[in-house]
C-alpha cells in the first residue's frame, strides 16, 4: 500500500510535469490580478469581492479542475492508475497518492492565487495588508486542497470520470446559498471563512472543521469507489 501510494505520487508529478498545458499556468494568476485591479478602482471591499468572486469562485475550483484533468485525463479515477495497477500496484493506494499530490499542487496554486488577490487589491501601507495576506494564504491553500479531493472524488463516478463536472456545478450553484442545502458544499464554508454569510449561521471558526470533515469524506469516498 505504501509503495503504491508513492508510485501514485510519482505518476501524478510525471503527468503534471510532462503536460504542455503547464504553459497556461499564468492565466489564472493574470485573471485574478486583473479582476483585483478592476475591483480596487471600483471602491471599498475590493479584497472581499475579489477573493469571494474571481479567486474562490472561479480561479481556484477551475484551476483544481484543470490540474485534475492532467492527472486523471478523461477517465475514471480507478482507470487513471492503470499503468500502476497492471503491474500489481494497489489501486486504492495509487489513487490516494495521485490525489494527495494533486491536492498539494492545488493547495500551492490556491495560496498563490489568494495572495495575488490581496496584493492586487490592498496597498502595503494598508493596516490590514499583512493580516489579510496571511489569512488569505492559508484559506487559499485549504480551498485548493479541498477542491482537488472533492473533484477527484467526483472523477470516480461516470464512465469517463464525468462526476467531477457534476460536483463542480452543484458546488457552484448550491454552495452559494446559506441554507441547509449549502451545508455539504466546500464553497459555502470557504465563503464563511472569508467573512461572507455563514451557512445556517455557523460561526466562522466552524468552517475549517467542516471543510476538514468534507475532505475526510472525499478521501473515504475515493477509497470506497476504487477497487484494490
Amino acid at each position: 500500500m505504501r509503495r503504491s501510494l508513492l508510485d501514485g505520487c510519482v505518476l501524478a508529478i510525471r503527468r503534471v510535469a510532462r503536460a504542455r498545458s503547464l504553459l497556461l499556468l499564468p492565466l489564472p494568476i493574470l485573471f485574478v490580478a486583473l479582476v483585483g485591479w478592476t475591483e480596487r478602482s471600483a471602491g471599498a471591499a475590493a479584497t472581499d469581492r475579489t477573493l469571494t468572486g474571481a479567486t474562490f469562485g472561479f480561479a481556484i475550483p477551475l484551476g483544481a479542475l484543470a490540474l485534475l484533468r492532467l492527472v486523471v485525463p478523461g477517465v475514471r479515477l480507478d482507470e487513471s492508475v492503470l499503468p500502476l495497477s497492471r503491474r500489481g500496484a494497489d489501486r486504492r493506494g495509487a489513487a490516494l497518492g495521485l490525489l494527495a499530490t494533486l491536492s498539494a499542487l492545488a493547495g500551492v496554486g490556491g495560496t498563490i492565487l489568494a495572495l495575488v488577490a490581496v496584493l492586487a487589491t490592498r496597498s502595503p501601507a494598508d493596516p490590514r495588508f499583512t493580516s489579510d495576506l496571511v489569512a488569505s494564504a492559508w484559506i487559499g491553500g485549504l480551498g485548493g486542497a479541498i477542491y482537488a479531493w472533492w473533484l477527484g472524488f467526483g472523477a470516480s463516478f461516470g464512465a469517463r470520470g464525468g462526476g467531477r463536472w457534476a460536483l463542480l456545478l452543484l458546488d457552484a450553484t448550491l454552495g452559494m446559498g446559506t441554507g441547509a442545502l449549502a451545508l455539504p458544499w466546500p464553497r459555502a464554508h470557504l465563503r464563511n471563512l472569508l467573512g461572507a454569510d455563514a451557512v445556517l449561521g455557523l460561526p466562522q471558526w466552524a468552517a475549517a472543521p467542516w471543510l476538514g470533515a468534507l475532505l475526510l469524506l472525499c478521501v473515504l469516498g475515493a477509497v470506497a469507489r476504487v477497487d484494490r
Binding site: S4, D78, E79, L82, S85, R86, R87, G88, A89, D90, R91, D227, R228
Partner: peptide, 29 residues
C-alpha cells in the same frame, strides 16, 4: 482477465484470487 474491469458480475479467479481485487495476482498477469 487483467483485473481492469470493475463493472462485471460472476466469478473470475486466477489461482484462487480475483485479479480485480488482488494486486498480487495482477502483478503476475
Amino acid at each position: 482477465l487483467g483485473g481492469q474491469l470493475r463493472d462485471r458480475a460472476g466469478t473470475l479467479t486466477i489461482d484462487g484470487a480475483d485479479p480485480q481485487r488482488s494486486p498480487a495476482a495482477r502483478a503476475r498477469i
